[in-house]
Amino acid sequence: MQPFTQLTSPVVLLPRADVNTDDIIPAQYLKVTDKAGLARGLFARWRYREDGTPNPDFPLNRPEAREARILLTGPNFGSGSSREHAVWALMQWGFRAVLAPSFSDIFYNNAVKNGLLPAQLDEGTHAALVAWVEAHPGEAITVDLETREIRLPDGTTFPFHIDDFSRQCLLQGLDELDFLLRHEDRIRAYEQAHHK
């Protein structure tokens, strides 16, 4: 997994609450046996019009979104289904960080396991950042995982939250499966002790 330390990028603003994983990638795009081509389904119901052409009003279709690697969105992001396809689709489109006041538990876990930073913002920070992005479309901000800070071009900083272990995993690009496999003797001992 690619480590995440710092990211400077423009921001896509999706100011909705309760964006669920069906919104992020509808079920029709899940009929795959690999991870390829999922970016096509990202926010498909909002991103395309009924005739399949891009909806110019959707934030992802605006010119300034092309280079954006950061998604700023509302509370309870990623609720609903456990589909990891939601994280894969976001990352294949190019996102490396999602900033929101809160995340669903499963989405948060899936994100960290793929190197997508789920940065949790206090409500005041969220409101201030949304206002700033609205006033400065296309301008880059920096997300610094070392310091758990978001920096604006004028030097203003905002804190964000992420639990310590997830932060370490992202900073080091730690693969959790390798980590678990290194504990195989402990797992074996547990199975023996508990007659499993």
């Binding site: 456990s82 396991k113 499966l177 496999l181």
Partner: peptide
Amino acid sequence: GIGTTQVAHVLATQSLLI
């Protein structure tokens, strides 16, 4: 519920980091 990466973790180790 778990994501697919964790499905792989459980298949391989019968355990999860949580």
